[in-house]
């Protein structure tokens, strides 16, 4: 594969931009140390490469999200249990909201 193949779009999916935004904001607010983050992302990418993952954007952003989740749990900013619970809440909200209406969590 040639390394120069690329899409011209900055982000192919909205959540790709959003996960970059979350990380960038946490770094700017000094809640995430950029050096620790680089190491964490690098380790996740290396692990995936060893496991034979595809070398593309989809894998990169999945690695990014996984590494971010693990780092935030380790630093006690967001535990896995808390995120699991909110993920379940959002899933229920999406499935329970009629088409065309805004989706929101119930308080």
């Amino acid at each position: 594969m040639s390394v120069c193949q690329e899409s011209t779009a900055d982000f192919t999916e909205l959540w790709h931009a959003q996960v970059i935004a979350v990380l960038d904001l946490l770094v700017k607010n000094k809640q995430v140390d950029p050096e620790k983050w680089s190491r964490a992302l690098g380790a996740e990418l290396d692990q995936r490469q060893s496991d034979g993952a595809t070398d593309d954007d989809a894998n990169y952003y999945d690695a990014f999200l996984t590494a971010l989740g693990m780092m935030l749990e380790k630093s006690e900013l967001a535990s896995r249990a808390e995120v699991d619970e909110r993920e379940s809440d959002w899933r229920a909200a999406y499935l329970g909201t009629p088409h065309g209406q805004p989706v929101a969590l119930k308080n």
């Binding site: 959540w15 959003q18 996960v19 979350v22 946490l26 999200l65 971010l68 989740g69 935030l72 900013l77 967001a78 808390e82 995120v83 699991d84 619970e85 909110r86 993920e87 809440d89 959002w90 969590l105």
Partner: peptide, 9 residues
């Protein structure tokens, strides 16, 4: 998953 993470944060 990201939406849930953002909500918690």
């Amino acid at each position: 998953r990201l939406k849930a993470l953002e909500t918690v944060l």
